[in-house]
Amino acid sequence: MIRINPRITEKLAFAFLFFSTLLILVPVFLILVLIFKDGLPALSWEFLASYPRLGMRAGGIFPALLGTVYLAAGTLVFSLPIGILGAIYLSEYAKDHGFKRVVEVAIINLAGVPSVVYGLFGLGLFVIFLKFGASLLAGSLTLGIMSLPVIITSTREALGTVPKSFREVSLALGATKWQTIRRAVLPNALPGILTGTILALSRAAGETAPILFTVAAFYLPKLPQSIFDQAMALPYHLYVISTQVPNVKLSIQYGTALVLILLVLAMNIVAIVIRARFRKRKLW
């Protein structure tokens, strides 16, 4: 066996580890640079606030942007209550029996389902079987189901970080289990829950496959009037103007991508700020 001087192996190890870390940064950096370089010139108030014109070869992205905001809001409405309540049940109430394990395995599997399968499922259940048609409702429900595993998992993690002593103190003062969860546990888990929820939403906002068959419209001359209307959405719009419509200016394509990525980044930054604020405040 060859013996290498430990000082050399130490340097080698450091070099490899550092290089690998650097590799993580490269794609993020390149994506941002490329999109900013070609997209930034297109970005203007008018681009954000006006309708597409000339067969989407000119004008802005307002309906798509608004559609994505609607979808994110709809996703929140459907996934947040169910996710939080389900997570509370699993973490605080469910006994460690078969049923709980089945649900836990189901959640893990739900998280692993490819997004295009969610799209087909949404098409089958909401659009066709429940006759919602391609609509904001069907799209929000589909994205909501896709977001559930992340929200449930992050809520359970947040509940788990609340010290056991808070619960015992509350119970020892004569609180019921629900009073304890409501007053001693949830307020202290809320920042973690919010962080996880925003991250799940930012992912939902950027997804294309689940909305493809359930809500997204190629082009609509007017905004959706109710939850039963179709809507345009940023990720699908980007796909359309990049591959389906010929001769779209590069700046419009990259401008759209830039808006999408900024939207998602902004949501992630909000999540990071909430987390950082909470860390500063928390004293246990």
């Binding site: 002593s165 808070f166 119970l171 020892a172 004569g174 019921t176 246990w284």
Partner: peptide, 20 residues
């Protein structure tokens, strides 16, 4: 019932446990 009992029998824990 539990709330009634725990209201009548209070407890001080080993480590001071103020709520935040």
């Amino acid at each position: 019932d539990l709330p009634t009992l725990r209201k009548k029998i209070g407890m001080i824990f080993a480590l001071p446990a103020p709520l935040p």
